[in-house]
Write a protein that binds this DNA or RNA. Sequence first.
RNA 1: GCCAGGGUGGGGUAGACGGUUAUCCUAAGGGACUGUGGAUCCCUCGACCCGGGUUCGAAUCUCGGCCCUGGCCCCA
Length: 410
Amino acid sequence: MLQKPRGTRDFLPDEMERRRLIEQRMREVSRRWGYREVSTPDFEHLELFTMKSGEGIIQEMYTFEDKGGRPMTLRPEVTASVLRMYVNEGKVFPKPIRWCYFADCFRYERPQKGRYRQFWQFGVELIGADTAGADAEVVMLADDVLRSSGVTFDLRVGHLAPMKHLLSDLALGDQRTVMACLDKRDREALAAALDKRGASHLSDPLAALSECQTVAEVFEIAGDVPERARIEETFALLDSQGIDYRPDFGIARGLDYYTGMVFEGFARNLGAENQIIGGGAYRLAHLFGGDDVASCGFAIGFDRVMVSIGDFALAPETVIGVVCMSEARERGLEVARAFRDAGVRAEVNLMERGMGAQIAHAAKTADFAVILGKREVDAGTVTLRNLHSGEQQEISLGEAVAEVAQHGDR
RNA sequence: GCCAGGGUGGGGUAGACGGUUAUCCUAAGGGACUGUGGAUCCCUCGACCCGGGUUCGAAUCUCGGCCCUGGCCCCA
């Protein structure tokens, strides 16, 4: 049998409804903060992503040439596209710009728990506000969105400035290597990397930086960095709103374009792939030919959130099954339409089965059966049978619709 | 790319010193039943992941691949 491609998934209706529900909550929370949804192409010029992240990521992407020989790729993430869109057509909008998105992305990686080759991200980008308030808003929104989904998570917020300040004597490439060790919490590799570069004296301060429980401790170690006021203000804003997070100045996020505040979130009940959100302040627009505008955003691994919260019961929906004998087929369509017009999900019989079999089927899939035979057609009535209680009555169509509507959801 | 464990009808499974027509449950479709229920009974549908090898004979042994699950690396 033909299999679906590796790392992809099929979603049955129950799961699709759960996904739509959570997705909708995320959108709704973002909307309330003023973040309006945007959409960008599913594929882009390959160059967009190599400009942002380097050539090395090509092997992780679904790249192809279009029929004109242009190098293209299915998007591996959304931030680059949104910033490209900003440069293309968003520059004239009043700042700050608040956008959100929900989109599937593609990466050619080894699938494992919570990691798929086609996966969905919900994210926001706040463009054009270079302030502590902007940094704090993005973290607070992330917290709000994640809470709305019902996922249980730990949030860690940091800033790159103290770490970079300590590493300022090292070459840029060396800084990156050391920061990667820090990000991974690999103290041995960290010590080795520093030793090799004649910077062993930084080992203890850097390790201590990762362990800091408060912002005050950070500056005892890193000294009075220029970003100090902004960092203190950002964290004070988070504290003032009771956001549940831990300061973590060991977060490096490994990427060149992050410029200041960075944060991550982890689901408590997932395995190796437990990071469900990552974000921070960055500068990208200038790479795509725009102004060097400050931005801040996050991306949530939607599928991991869904894995983390697991299956949950959906709100039941009242369903009626139209049971009709062959002489009532057209009447059955009229009756179904009346229920649909009233907002009720109505399914007509299509199987040319006997009445007993139709009712048996309706009993499995519906809450009410609306029975139509010669008698009802002649009398202009319907027989409404409650499939839970077994009670039934022969009444007018209008009365039946009212009865079902009043019943509400199961 | 690497490591470990797996793969039998749609779902769940039995069968493994190699040997009849591959077991059972469930789901689905039909019938008993042309005006009333999920019961019961009967029938039907439907599987050994793919390919090579060993063998008279492979679901079973062997090799390779694919896929799944988890982990490593990576994680924009």
